[in-house]
């Protein structure tokens, strides 16, 4: 994905949406709508009740999915269907405990079997990641590593040494959520990573408008837009309404990024 986008000089757009909303079948349709509107791939959230890195909107989406009976296998099923339907790369986002509960090896085997390209675990710092990275490598699934504005140079070196599929560069010091102002950290963080490595860099956290997405993608390989997508689904009373809102929003993001 990143090789082509670099070749074309085009920022990658990865919307995030919690799996299973409003229900497992309609959920896949929403991802298809976003792919048709210009998304290059997806971060698909496996619902978790106690998400430490997420703000109120994504937390509420997880609670709604769990209340509707969406389990880990259901969410992986949605991810597999999205992969098959859209033929775009799919990243699964989960907190660490469900992975441990499934068994690390078993989780990554399941992910591989379902065609999932990469896994994002926001409460798994590099310090604890070794057994996860080993299982991911054996199963041929990518691991994503995080860099934050607070990350020290020493830690940044260690993050890059893990040779992640890409670096999820955290644009805002805080949990996921929409921000009014553009991040002031992106330029500095991008420069610090670029000075060390040619690894793909995708910005996320606090990127909620087409303008912010365009600005961030100029400093890296692309952007993840989460809360602004999830909110549009949570505020819609029907699947049709949600699909309309996402089609319009993702098109706007696409045009802004392509500038």
């Amino acid at each position: 994905m990143f090789a082509e986008s670099r070749e074309a000089g085009r920022g990658v757009l990865l919307p995030f949406l919690t799996a299973g909303l409003p229900d497992p079948v309609a959920s896949v349709e929403l991802f298809k709508t976003m792919a048709d509107a210009g998304a290059d791939g997806f971060e698909i959230g496996i619902p978790y009740a106690d998400p430490l890195m997420d703000g109120p909107v994504i937390m509420a989406a997880g609670h709604r999915a769990i209340a509707q009976g969406i389990t880990l296998p259901d969410a992986l099923g949605v991810a597999a269907a999205v992969r098959e339907t859209t033929q775009t790369p799919v990243l699964a986002m989960t907190y660490v405990n469900p992975v441990l509960r499934s068994g690390v090896r078993e989780f990554f085997a399941q992910a591989a079997e379902r065609g999932i390209n990469g896994v994002i675990i926001p409460d798994l710092p590099i310090d604890e990641a070794a057994p996860f990275s080993a299982a991911a490598a054996e199963e041929g699934v990518g691991m994503v590593a995080f860099a934050a504005p607070t990350t020290t140079d020493e830690r940044l070196d260690a993050v890059l040494e893990t040779e992640p599929a890409f670096v999820y560069a955290i644009a805002e010091v805080g949990v996921t959520g929409e921000r009014d102002a553009a991040s002031e950290n992106i330029h500095a963080l991008a420069a610090r990573i670029r000075a060390r490595s040619d690894v793909p860099v995708v910005f996320g956290v606090g990127i909620s408008t087409p303008e912010q997405a365009a600005a961030a993608s100029r400093h890296g390989d692309g952007v993840i837009v989460g809360t602004a997508v999830v909110r549009r689904v949570m505020e819609s009373s029907t699947t049709v309404q949600a699909a309309d809102a996402l089609r319009m929003f993702v098109s706007e993001l696409r045009s802004a990024i392509d500038g």
Partner: peptide
């Protein structure tokens, strides 16, 4: 060194917090 008591403990926290824990 890994912050463990036997197999228990460790630091499973977002990267944003890790420098503050150090």
């Amino acid at each position: 060194e890994a912050g463990r008591f036997g197999q228990f403990g460790g630091a499973f926290a977002p990267e944003t917090l890790m420098p503050a824990l150090e």
